[in-house]
């Protein structure tokens, strides 16, 4: 996984994420990745895709959004969720398993650094709450 990963991999990722052929044709990854915000969109999509078909994240997400007390921008969430050492593009290029690993490492780091929060008794990492919020926002 690196910045120089061939474009074909990015296409595969997008296919893996379930984007339609039309979308791929209309939004070539080169174009998507040309702007920071689009890469953020893809990153958000990649994160959310891990939780496709899994219920109940809304409840946690809403808790986060309520406690944030103001508008939460998905882009900010993505930036905060991504490990600081990993560039946005590298993240977008990563395989699903790698994305999971990167996020899990981020979560583990939260626990070690006591970036944790208790939501009605559930001890969760802040990253986990942000993931839930991101999934919730994308579902809205």
């Amino acid at each position: 996984m690196s910045e120089s990963t061939p474009r074909i991999d990015r296409r595969q990722i997008l296919i893996g994420m379930g984007l339609t052929g039309l979308a791929l044709a209309t939004w070539p990854t080169s174009w998507l990745l040309a702007t920071g915000s689009s890469a953020t969109d893809i990153a958000a999509e990649r994160i959310a895709a891990l939780f496709n078909g899994r219920d109940g994240l809304d409840g946690l997400g809403q808790q986060y959004l309520r406690s944030a007390q103001g508008r939460v921008d998905p882009k900010d969430l993505v930036e905060e969720i991504l490990p600081p050492s990993i560039g946005l593009r590298a993240f977008v290029d990563a395989s699903d398993d790698e994305v999971r690993l990167l996020l899990s490492a981020r979560v583990a780091d939260d626990f070690v650094s006591h970036r944790i929060t208790s939501v009605e008794g559930w001890i969760l990492s802040r990253t986990e709450m942000k993931i839930a919020a991101l999934v919730t926002l994308r579902g809205i």
Partner: peptide, 20 residues
């Protein structure tokens, strides 16, 4: 417990669990 369900989804998603 709706939040518990969310936590299970989080853990499931991050670990690619297939049988919740």
């Amino acid at each position: 417990d709706p939040l518990g369900k969310g936590v299970r989804s989080l853990v499931g998603g991050l670990n690619d669990l297939t049988s919740p």
